[in-house]
Deep mutational scan, measured.
Amino acid sequence: LQLFIKTLTGKTFTVEMEPSDTIENLKAKIQDKEGIPPDQQRLIFAGKQLEDGRTLSDYNIQKESTLHLVL
Results as ranks from 00 to 15, higher is better:
residue 38 P to V: 12
residue 20 S to A: 15
residue 7 T to R: 12
residue 47 G to V: 02
residue 45 F to W: 08
residue 42 R to K: 08
residue 11 K to R: 07
residue 20 S to E: 09
residue 14 T to M: 11
residue 37 P to A: 14
residue 28 A to Q: 15
residue 13 F to K: 01
residue 54 R to D: 05
residue 65 S to N: 15
residue 1 L to M: 12
residue 21 D to P: 01
residue 56 L to D: 00
residue 11 K to A: 14
residue 59 Y to A: 03
residue 42 R to G: 05
residue 3 L to C: 02
residue 16 E to T: 09
residue 60 N to F: 07
residue 71 L to M: 14
residue 68 H to F: 08
residue 37 P to G: 06
residue 37 P to T: 09
residue 51 E to A: 13
residue 71 L to N: 08
residue 64 E to C: 05
residue 17 M to Y: 14
residue 50 L to R: 00
residue 14 T to I: 14
residue 63 K to E: 08
residue 3 L to G: 00
residue 68 H to M: 12
residue 45 F to C: 03
residue 35 G to P: 02
residue 31 Q to R: 14
residue 12 T to F: 08
residue 52 D to L: 06
residue 49 Q to C: 05
residue 8 L to G: 15
residue 34 E to Q: 11
residue 47 G to K: 04
residue 2 Q to P: 11
residue 65 S to R: 03
residue 23 I to M: 03
residue 7 T to G: 06
residue 33 K to I: 07
residue 3 L to S: 00
residue 7 T to F: 13
residue 2 Q to K: 14
residue 70 V to H: 07
residue 38 P to A: 13
residue 35 G to D: 06
residue 28 A to G: 15
residue 9 T to K: 10
residue 48 K to E: 12
residue 9 T to V: 15
residue 57 S to D: 08
residue 38 P to C: 04
residue 39 D to V: 07
residue 53 G to V: 15
residue 62 Q to H: 09
residue 47 G to S: 06
residue 67 L to M: 04
residue 66 T to N: 05
residue 2 Q to H: 09
residue 63 K to W: 09
residue 15 V to N: 00
residue 35 G to M: 06
residue 51 E to T: 07
residue 54 R to F: 11
residue 51 E to S: 08
residue 25 N to E: 09
residue 28 A to L: 13
residue 39 D to T: 14
residue 47 G to D: 08
residue 66 T to Y: 08
residue 59 Y to L: 05
residue 64 E to R: 15
residue 11 K to L: 15
residue 41 Q to I: 13
residue 6 K to Q: 15
residue 45 F to N: 02
residue 48 K to L: 15
residue 30 I to H: 00
residue 59 Y to E: 03
residue 62 Q to C: 04
residue 48 K to V: 11
residue 12 T to E: 09
residue 23 I to A: 02
residue 24 E to H: 11
residue 42 R to S: 11
residue 52 D to M: 06
residue 5 I to G: 00
residue 24 E to N: 10
residue 17 M to A: 12
residue 52 D to F: 04
residue 31 Q to K: 08
residue 17 M to P: 02
residue 16 E to C: 04
residue 31 Q to A: 14
residue 59 Y to K: 01
residue 32 D to V: 10
residue 29 K to V: 07
residue 41 Q to K: 01
residue 40 Q to A: 13
residue 41 Q to T: 04
residue 15 V to W: 02
residue 55 T to L: 06
residue 40 Q to E: 10
residue 36 I to R: 03
residue 11 K to Q: 12
residue 36 I to S: 05
residue 24 E to W: 10
residue 52 D to V: 07
residue 25 N to H: 14
residue 51 E to M: 14
residue 19 P to K: 07
residue 60 N to G: 09
residue 30 I to W: 00
residue 8 L to H: 11
residue 64 E to G: 13
residue 69 L to R: 00
residue 7 T to D: 09
residue 69 L to N: 01
residue 32 D to C: 05
residue 2 Q to D: 07
residue 6 K to V: 14
residue 35 G to K: 10
residue 3 L to A: 02
residue 48 K to A: 14
residue 54 R to T: 09
residue 34 E to R: 14
residue 28 A to F: 13
residue 47 G to W: 05
residue 49 Q to P: 11
residue 52 D to I: 06
residue 39 D to A: 12
residue 11 K to C: 05
residue 55 T to N: 06
residue 26 L to C: 02
residue 62 Q to I: 14
residue 60 N to H: 10
residue 33 K to G: 05
residue 8 L to K: 09
residue 69 L to K: 00
residue 66 T to E: 07
residue 28 A to R: 15
residue 58 D to E: 07
residue 44 I to K: 05
residue 32 D to N: 07
residue 44 I to V: 13
residue 26 L to G: 00
residue 58 D to S: 09
residue 44 I to A: 05
residue 52 D to K: 05
residue 50 L to Q: 00
residue 40 Q to I: 10
residue 2 Q to T: 13
residue 35 G to L: 05
residue 8 L to T: 11
residue 3 L to I: 15
residue 2 Q to L: 13
residue 65 S to Y: 12
residue 60 N to Q: 14
residue 29 K to M: 09
residue 38 P to L: 14
residue 55 T to I: 14
residue 51 E to R: 06
residue 56 L to M: 06
residue 64 E to Q: 14
residue 40 Q to K: 14
residue 24 E to Y: 15
residue 43 L to T: 01
residue 6 K to M: 12
residue 27 K to W: 03
residue 48 K to H: 12
residue 20 S to F: 10
residue 31 Q to I: 02
residue 22 T to H: 06
residue 71 L to D: 14
residue 5 I to E: 00
residue 26 L to P: 00
residue 41 Q to S: 04
residue 26 L to F: 02
residue 60 N to D: 13
residue 21 D to C: 03
residue 4 F to Q: 10
residue 24 E to K: 07
residue 49 Q to V: 10
residue 13 F to G: 01
residue 15 V to Y: 04
residue 67 L to F: 04
residue 59 Y to Q: 03
residue 43 L to S: 00
residue 58 D to Y: 13
residue 69 L to I: 06
residue 24 E to R: 08
residue 37 P to Y: 06
residue 13 F to Q: 02
residue 55 T to Y: 08
residue 60 N to A: 10
residue 62 Q to S: 14
residue 35 G to H: 08
residue 44 I to R: 06
residue 9 T to P: 06
residue 19 P to N: 12
residue 18 E to H: 09
residue 47 G to Q: 04
residue 52 D to G: 12
residue 23 I to C: 02
residue 46 A to Y: 08
residue 71 L to E: 08
residue 48 K to R: 13
residue 59 Y to V: 03
residue 42 R to A: 06
residue 21 D to R: 06
residue 40 Q to D: 12
residue 50 L to P: 01
residue 36 I to N: 03
residue 63 K to C: 04
residue 28 A to I: 13
residue 23 I to R: 00
residue 28 A to M: 15
residue 10 G to C: 03
residue 69 L to E: 01
residue 58 D to F: 12
residue 23 I to W: 01
residue 67 L to H: 02
residue 36 I to H: 11
residue 67 L to P: 03
residue 9 T to N: 10
residue 19 P to C: 04
residue 65 S to F: 07
residue 23 I to G: 01
residue 27 K to E: 01
residue 49 Q to K: 10
residue 36 I to Y: 11
residue 20 S to D: 15
residue 40 Q to T: 15
residue 45 F to E: 01
residue 7 T to H: 14
residue 17 M to L: 15
residue 11 K to V: 15
residue 31 Q to F: 15
residue 37 P to I: 05
residue 69 L to S: 01
residue 28 A to N: 07
residue 48 K to M: 10
residue 29 K to Y: 08
residue 70 V to A: 08
residue 2 Q to G: 06
residue 65 S to L: 04
residue 18 E to F: 13
residue 69 L to M: 06
residue 11 K to N: 15
residue 11 K to I: 12
residue 68 H to W: 06
residue 37 P to D: 14
residue 69 L to P: 00
residue 71 L to F: 10
residue 44 I to C: 05
residue 40 Q to L: 15
residue 26 L to H: 00
residue 31 Q to P: 01
residue 27 K to L: 02
residue 43 L to Y: 05
residue 50 L to K: 00
residue 10 G to R: 07
residue 61 I to T: 03
residue 43 L to W: 03
residue 4 F to K: 11
residue 12 T to C: 05
residue 51 E to Y: 05
residue 68 H to K: 05
residue 61 I to C: 01
residue 29 K to R: 08
residue 36 I to W: 13
residue 3 L to N: 00
residue 20 S to W: 14
residue 20 S to R: 08
residue 70 V to S: 14
residue 8 L to A: 11
residue 31 Q to G: 14
residue 15 V to Q: 02
residue 10 G to S: 06
residue 4 F to Y: 15
residue 54 R to S: 09
residue 57 S to C: 03
residue 70 V to E: 09
residue 46 A to T: 05
residue 31 Q to Y: 11
residue 46 A to W: 12
residue 3 L to H: 01
residue 23 I to L: 05
residue 29 K to T: 08
residue 68 H to E: 08
residue 61 I to W: 03
residue 40 Q to G: 06
residue 50 L to C: 03
residue 22 T to Q: 05
residue 41 Q to A: 05
residue 5 I to A: 00
residue 71 L to Y: 14
residue 15 V to S: 01
residue 32 D to A: 14
residue 68 H to R: 06
residue 14 T to G: 06
residue 27 K to N: 01
residue 9 T to W: 15
residue 42 R to H: 13
residue 60 N to P: 04
residue 9 T to I: 11
residue 35 G to C: 03
residue 9 T to H: 11
residue 53 G to N: 13
residue 20 S to H: 10
residue 54 R to H: 09
residue 45 F to P: 00
residue 26 L to Y: 00
residue 12 T to W: 08
residue 61 I to G: 02
residue 39 D to W: 11
residue 33 K to C: 04
residue 22 T to M: 07
residue 5 I to N: 00
residue 48 K to N: 06
residue 30 I to R: 00
residue 50 L to W: 02
residue 34 E to T: 14
residue 16 E to I: 13
residue 38 P to E: 08
